[in-house]
Nucleic acid binder design. Structure first.
Lengths: 192, 192
DNA sequence: CGTTTACACTAGCGCTTGCTTGGTTGACCC
DNA sequence: GGGTCAACCAAGCAAGCGCTAGTGTAAACG
């Protein structure tokens, strides 16, 4: 009936779906709601996506891929010191949350709604992103910038950062750069 | 039709509901699934709870209230130094996650499914719990144990701790006490 | 020109959902 | 031993769900 390409039309529909998934949650978002948001009828939706699950997969894939690209770019541009790289990763993470918020909230909250195949496929992407973090944290440990268990420290840092979607207000006085500074200062124990 | 008491029967049913909510998510858990898990028929369920929403409220209320009690007890029992109190709170938080895991996972993941009235009621409970944390972090800041912005530090710490439900394996080699030590060491920059 | 392709539509099927209704059971009470 | 009451059940309703089938249409292609 349809194709699974990545046309610009499909990208736009995916973006709109992400918005609804954040507002309502995946399960409560009906195909009729999605269709209305997209300005088409519910039946037409299945020309672009095989089923509702595939929309969720598309949203999360898009968001994770962007995060990976942005993080890699940030690492390439920054100074080659452990502290700069740590800071660059933290800032990139927060900026991603700012510009691509919907997709990331969906990835965090609705991961469990993915069917096993999609989860398997996407977990490779996520692992690649987390591998970047672990490398940077390894450098920071090696440079004596931070101390402790490699596994635990990276989990704690990821937790602190991911939790920001719950409370961070982009319209507030704090910039992603501020937050990144403060976080790095906290774990390296140097003045912000 | 029924009452909204807190009978032991209702407590037990609430505990079983929490289990299912964790496995399937709130929206995907049907009243028929809940009833089967409880060993009754779906209609009988509405003798104990007004509607499905009220079950969710009961689960989250129970879990948050327990966390509050445990945290208060931990603070009363520990030494009166800033570091001990910080450690005690972290350990209490993780132990709660261990013993009462289901209810807390539900509180973290399904908070948005609450209707506005229930959310309003429960947010007071949660605020009371977070106030404990902020007080302890204030002490640590005052004692020079940690540095930085009061608001940001407490959010970062809460994030790191709450994120543990995603990866922490109670059957693994690390105890809640280990994790609490490691976290406090990370932010106070002292050897674990 | 006729054919194909992309995208949208209308209509509705088969099923599940949360919840209601009206009635039964058995333990306890004066 | 009649009355009370919490606890449960069988049956089913109205609404909503994901998804399909078949069709229309306008642009692109050979």
């Amino acid at each position: 009936m349809n194709v699974m390409n990545d046309s610009p039309r499909r990208k736009e529909l995916t973006r709109q779906a992400a918005q609804l998934f954040v507002q309502e949650g995946f399960d409560r978002t009906t195909v009729r709601m999605l269709a209305q948001e997209m300005g088409i009828k519910s039946g037409s939706l299945f020309h672009h996506f095989r089923d509702k699950q595939e929309i969720l997969t598309a949203v999360i894939e898009e968001g994770t891929q962007n995060a990976l690209v942005i993080a890699k770019a940030a690492l390439e541009q920054c100074d080659n010191t452990a502290e700069s790289r740590l800071q660059a990763m933290a800032r990139a993470h927060l900026e991603t949350l700012l510009t691509d918020r919907n997709a990331h909230v969906v990835a965090l909250y609705e991961w469990r709604r993915l069917d096993p195949e999609a989860r398997d496929h996407l977990s490779h992407l996520r692992d690649a992103y987390e591998a970047l973090w672990e490398a940077v944290i390894d450098e920071a440990l090696g440079a004596g910038l931070i101390h402790g268990d490699r596994f635990l420290v990276s989990r704690f840092v990821m937790g602190a950062l991911n939790w920001t979607v719950r409370w961070y207000d982009p319209a507030g006085p704090r910039s992603p750069d501020d937050l990144a500074h403060e976080l790095v200062a906290m774990i390296t124990h140097r003045p912000a």
